[in-house]
Design a protein around this nucleic acid. Structure first.
Length: 477
RNA sequence: GGGGUCGUAGUCCAGCUUGGUUAAGAUUCUCCCUUGGGGUGGGAGAGACCGUGAGUUCGAAUCUCACCGACCCCA
């Protein structure tokens, strides 16, 4: 068999990713502005499906869609001190319009707190207005100075941002759990794993009281943060003047949370986590074409049979396409494998004669024979099987890349090794985290897991001070 | 912030050291024939103001300077 078109993603992830992005026609980097790429139709399909899933789960849990303007008055940025510090060096600003200097300077949202909270201050008047749960699906803009890579880090990225307001702290705390659940359900639909990790106090979103992040290990064993949710307390509601009258007539400043699943990054995960040396591997939900039918020769009888099958599958609700192109069969196989199409049906004289079809699943690249009258049942089971097996494989990779360090020496040795997560007992001190990062060549303290309770030792594995938690270390994007 | 590499068809790139005919090749795209169950083979055609600007020269993709852009490494 011929050589695979792509390198091994576990050995040369950067090269693999750039090539698959080009060959599967995902992103086009030729637009010519650094950090800004064009999303092509194959990628937009994945993006739209991710949006569809996130929005469905948000709405089912009581959120409502909104859309705030892209441009925000500059003075709004100055309202919350920590927030300004975090973003002022990253914002794009607009000073002119129609050739004239603007009376009021505007900036392009790097995130929308400063656009949303002034309006919340107008909308929220009574305890009856709470909880207020809203979200918007949009692009945000940050002038990143680090190296950019399509979908992983750009100066424009797509996300959903949810901004919720609650009367009571417990309700806000509970929202963090709900956000985690929404992330879990969405990721499940794309067979993606993640670890929910609470960030250390010194590593929070500017202005947050608590920050949870959803970390995934990529094929190069570096960690990618795909989404975050933050407990903001009164950090934004108070300075922006959001308050309400309680049932007993008291003026109260409410609590708030925000949740930001990075849609471009989740798409990058679908590509990176499932793909192989033949290209993308997509679950049914993410595929723009779910079943491709390939007539092995350009003969009218074969084409006719292929089209009748297409009609049958389309009627059953599948996204199906007959490849009528003039390329040879082998060329078409490679093409559709690169695009990650989950199922391929080959139609040759044998199939047309016997009505027993040759069906190939993309994830395993294995052929099987399926009688035509059993095809719909088989496709339905393949949908679930492929999703299940992709998920199992993805979780297996994540879990097999978590190690635990028993001592400082052990930690140093493991840090020199393959990468991935290293668990250790942490004292919680920023100084200690800085020291670890400096001495391990870039391992950062990500924080502690919130989905399970993990026992920690009495003293910090690194510095020997009192241990407070079992924390995860990793090199991050 | 510091250091380095590179800009030539849609894509990958040769040529530059030592200036000189029509800028070579592969891939891609179009058409014809052939082939077809894992990237068939052949033929014809299309596609490049050689990143931009200036300088040196009889003559610049090639030498010089400036600018713009991209990529990589280190902090």
């Amino acid at each position: 068999m011929a050589k695979a078109p792509l390198p091994d993603k576990f050995k040369q992830f950067g090269e693999w990713y750039d090539l698959v992005s080009e060959k599967a026609e995902l992103a086009d980097v030729r637009y010519g502005v650094k950090g800004f790429v064009v999303f092509r139709p194959n990628l937009m399909h994945v993006i739209r499906e991710i949006y569809e899933a996130l929005e469905r789960h948000l709405i089912a849990s009581g959120h409502r869609a909104m859309l705030f303007p892209l441009l925000i008055p500059y003075k709004n940025l100055l309202v919350e001190k920590e927030h300004v510090k975090g973003f002022e060096n990253q914002v794009f600003s607009v000073e002119k319009a129609g050739g004239e200097e603007l009376e009021e300077r505007l900036f392009i949202r790097p995130t929308s707190e400063t656009a949303i909270y002034p309006m919340y201050a107008l909308w929220i008047r009574s305890y009856r207005d709470l909880p207020f749960k809203g979200f918007q699906s949009c692009a945000v803009y940050r002038h990143e100075t680090k190296a950019t890579r399509p979908l992983f880090r750009g100066r424009e990225f797509l996300w959903v941002e949810s901004h919720n307001v609650f009367a009571k702290k417990e309700e806000a705390e509970a929202q963090l759990k709900e956000d985690m659940e929404i992330t879990r359900k969405t990721f499940e639909e794309f067979a993606l794993p993640f670890l929910p990790i609470e960030r250390e106090p010194f590593d929070r979103f500017p202005g947050a009281e608590r920050s949870l992040a959803y970390d995934v290990i990529l094929p190069d064993r570096q960690v990618l943060q795909s989404a975050t949710t933050h407990l903001l307390g009164k950090r934004f509601t108070a300075p922006f003047g959001v308050s309400f009258l309680s049932a007993d007539g008291q003026r109260v400043v409410p609590e708030s949370t925000c949740f930001g699943p990075g849609v471009s990054r989740i798409a990058a995960l679908v590509v990176s986590v499932h793909g192989d040396e033949y290209g993308l591997v997509l679950p049914f939900k993410a595929a723009i074409v779910q079943v491709v039918i390939i007539p092995i020769r350009n003969e009218p009888a074969l084409l006719e049979y292929a089209l009748s099958l297409e009609k049958k599958l389309a009627h059953a609700g599948y996204k199906v396409k007959v490849d009528e192109g003039s390329e040879t069969a082998g060329e078409k196989f490679y093409h559709w494998e690169m695009l990650g199409t989950p199922v391929r049906i080959e139609i040759g004289p044998r199939e047309a004669e016997s009505k027993v079809l040759t069906v190939t699943r993309r994830d395993q690249r294995k052929r099987e024979s399926v009688p035509e009258d059993a095809l719909l049942n088989r496709l339905a089971s393949l949908d679930q099987e492929i999703l299940g097996e992709l998920s199992k494989k993805a979780w297996g990779w994540l879990e097999s890349n978590i190690q635990e360090a028993s001592s400082k020496d052990d930690l140093l040795a493991k840090a020199k090794g393959a990468g991935g997560f290293i668990k250790f007992t942490f004292c919680g001190r920023e100084e200690c985290a800085r020291d670890i990062k400096a001495q391990t060549g870039g391992y950062e303290v990500r924080g502690r897991r919130v989905d399970i309770d993990e026992k920690h030792a009495a003293s910090c594995t690194w510095c020997g001070e009192k241990g407070v938690e079992l924390a995860y270390l990793a090199k991050a994007y």
